[in-house]
């Protein structure tokens, strides 16, 4: 029996990159995809409709957490066995999809994260970004007892159990690291595998220096409070 696999593509103001990303995804006939248009203020909605791309448009902006959760609720509704998160901005290479799915089935884990750092890759992030990643790696080893080299990676695949869990409960902002802590502490198995990441095709990263401090502080507090109390 073939398993039903959904690719969730959260998109907020991605009019430049969305067509390229989705056209690449459409090459993979064995996977379904859904673009979650998170109340974009640019032409993302019109572009999605013009091209007839599969999408769900949120009438107002919910932020990354609410948008991604919409994808998981969609996956839950329509009975998908696996869900893959993939950024709309072209950073995540669809060529890795087969690899993610194959590894996921082989290892039988609950969440598999695509990592840029497991082997040498072409990724070069800013210093703040790399510091943050190192810090989160340390935090996860301390609190959740998992060694994730690329904890902020949004390129990830989860199984049905996690889909159902995320459909009910998903962090509002900066969810990537927090969900690893939650899953690991609930006894779900979280592992990672190597993927390639490109420089973004359009748009700007949502993470500025001030935000990254907030990101680190928020994840630390929440991980500590929600894990131990």
């Amino acid at each position: 029996m073939t398993s039903k696999i959904l690719i969730i593509v959260p998109a907020y103001n991605e009019e430049q990159a969305i067509v390229g990303t989705v056209q690449q995804l459409e090459q993979f006939h064995e996977y379904d995809y859904v673009v979650i248009n998170d109340g974009s203020t640019d032409r993302t909605k019109e572009i999605l409709e013009q091209h007839g791309f599969s999408h769900v448009t949120l009438p107002v902006n919910l932020g990354i957490g609410g948008a991604v959760q919409t994808g998981y609720r969609y996956a839950e509704r329509f009975g998908y066995d696996y869900a893959i998160q993939l950024d709309a901005d072209g950073q995540h290479d669809p060529e890795d999809l087969h690899h993610l799915v194959a590894e996921m089935k082989k290892r039988d884990v609950d969440m598999l994260i695509g990592s840029r750092f497991l082997e040498k890759s072409n990724y070069k992030g800013s210093l703040t970004r790399r510091t943050g990643i190192l810090y989160f790696n340390y935090l996860l080893r301390m609190i959740a007892r998992v060694n994730i080299t690329d904890p902020t990676s949004g390129y990830r695949i989860v199984n049905r159990r996690v889909i159902e869990w995320f459909a009910k409960d998903y962090p509002v902002d900066y969810p990537e690291v927090e969900v690893i802590v939650k899953l690991a502490r609930k006894g779900f198995k979280v592992e990672e595998t190597k993927v390639e990441m490109n420089a973004r095709q359009g748009g700007a990263s949502s993470i500025t220096a001030v935000k990254s401090v907030y990101y680190m502080a928020k994840v630390t507090f929440f991980s500590l409070i929600r894990s131990y109390i």
């Binding site: 999408h55 769900v56 448009t57 949120l58 009438p59 107002v60 919910l62 609410g66 959760q69 919409t70 609720r73 969609y74 509704r77 509002v172």
Partner: peptide, 17 residues
């Protein structure tokens, strides 16, 4: 309220689709 609104927004989006 925020939590409820989030769920409603998602449901509205599903219905529109």
């Amino acid at each position: 309220q925020e939590h409820r609104i989030k769920t409603l927004v998602q449901d509205v989006a599903f219905l529109q689709r």
